[in-house]
Write a protein that binds this DNA or RNA. Structure first.
Lengths: 243, 243
DNA sequence: CTGTCTATAGTGTTGAACAATTTTTACATA
DNA sequence: TATGTAAAAATTGTTCAACACTATAGACAG
């Protein structure tokens, strides 16, 4: 019952996805083994090695990752909380399978969060630099045809928009949403077709903001999100008919 | 690697806090022991039996709750992910201690989420029934001087507002925020003084919405949240000077 | 072909064990 | 007395082996 006063980071939900445009990361808390392994699995899911719906056997993964069952179960807890995996009692964990309603909800949340965040933003907010870095990164990746990288940069761009709201909790929530979105991306093939058209629209939005027209930027963003949603839903329907 | 198709609930973050106004809960997933014990500890934190900053000894809790150490650690993982507990390497888990910046961020998020959700709401959305039930519940609890219940009802009311946005992900995010808010409430004494003045304001907001004036309701809500934030910050400063 | 039953595999939970780290205690020194 | 250091104790981090319980798969009778 001793009442000590520990100090830690703010939200508790730390180190999620971080693209090549990842920001600074204070090493205040030591990476525990479970977190490290969680990162490994996260990458497997994002890169498509682990496909949605597939079953993750405890014993098999213990063997492969060289960790004990208890530690692995901790990893599962982390990733389940993030929305990447799904528990079923006495059946184990599965890679989450985004459904049509998942996509719809993700984009509903995105419009709900991103647009106001952008509309109320100050043009010289530090977050704009991250936006700028993300679009540069996206174009660089496009030249090398690194479409996974383009996807990461796109997500980094929109994460930067959320940062404009200056709320750690909102940002960490958005990181979760982003992860689920990557799951969706992984489900769809033809990533060039998927990301290509949207890079320039991001640039457009950034230019509006840098010019001080936050409201106009927000309107363009909303149009962008509505288009993207239809686009993704269409691609999804082509891949997974009647799901 | 077998690719089965499981069906579960949508967001993965299920059964968090549920006040006396708790809605229906389909028993689709069997409560596992760890989850049950997590619920017990959650209530201890909410009710103030476990005060923020206090250390949770593994052995002591194993004894008290009659579970093994491994299971208890699984419980800790659940609650840590929820933001209720905080890990420190080789020192154990502590009840999270909300700071001033925590409170500020919580209320920033609340204004950011609740107000638009209310503004865009349809007066006859099912969520309004939950709002109505919550205010009734709050008044009932006030009569019996059950201030903990009043707090629960208040949180249920505002959760219902978020439900108006029809987004499972937004609602589950708000459930997390609510949990943190309860931690703050537990930190402050004199719950009558804390909750009393706000019940009637909730009623006021509901009446505006039911009358079809969503925009007016949203404005009142924003004023409410700004007042509440100042109120809570003041009480906090009195309890924990210079934290 | 269908439904029931048993066998098998996998998860849920426990207890014990040992390594690594922190906290406490004891002791020697200034 | 105060203080710094080292050993001892307590606590956490991690693993392993075992058993109970649940669900899936396969065998078998109708």
């Amino acid at each position: 019952m001793a009442a000590r006063k520990p100090q830690g980071d703010e939200t508790g939900y730390s180190n999620l996805v971080g693209g090549s445009t990842a920001g600074s990361r204070a090493a205040e808390t030591v990476q525990t083994l479970a977190e490290t392994v969680a990162g490994r699995i996260r990458e497997k899911v994002i890169s498509g090695t682990l496909t949605p719906g597939s079953h993750l056997s405890e014993m098999a993964l213990c063997e492969e990752l060289q960790v004990s069952r208890n530690t692995l179960r901790e990893v599962f807890r982390i990733l389940t909380q993030e929305g990447l995996l799904r528990y079923e009692a006495n059946r184990g964990v599965f890679v989450a399978t985004p459904s049509m309603s998942t996509i719809i909800d993700i984009y509903r949340v995105r419009r709900f969060i991103e647009c106001p965040a952008l509309a109320q933003a100050h043009p010289r907010h530090p977050g704009t630099q991250n936006m700028r870095a993300a679009v540069d990164d996206a174009r660089r990746c496009r030249e090398v045809k690194d479409w996974l990288g383009v996807g990461s940069a796109d997500i980094a761009f929109h994460s930067a928009i959320v940062e404009l709201a200056d709320s750690p909790r909102l940002s960490s929530f958005y990181a979760h949403i982003s992860l689920e979105l990557r799951l969706v991306f992984g489900l769809l093939q033809d990533p060039e077709f998927l990301h290509g058209p949207f890079i320039d629209q991001n640039v457009d939005i950034l230019l509006e903001l840098e010019a001080g027209r936050a409201t106009a930027a927000a309107e363009k963003l909303e149009a962008y999100l509505l288009r993207a949603e239809r686009f993704i839903l269409g691609a999804y329907a082509r891949v997974a008919p009647s799901a």
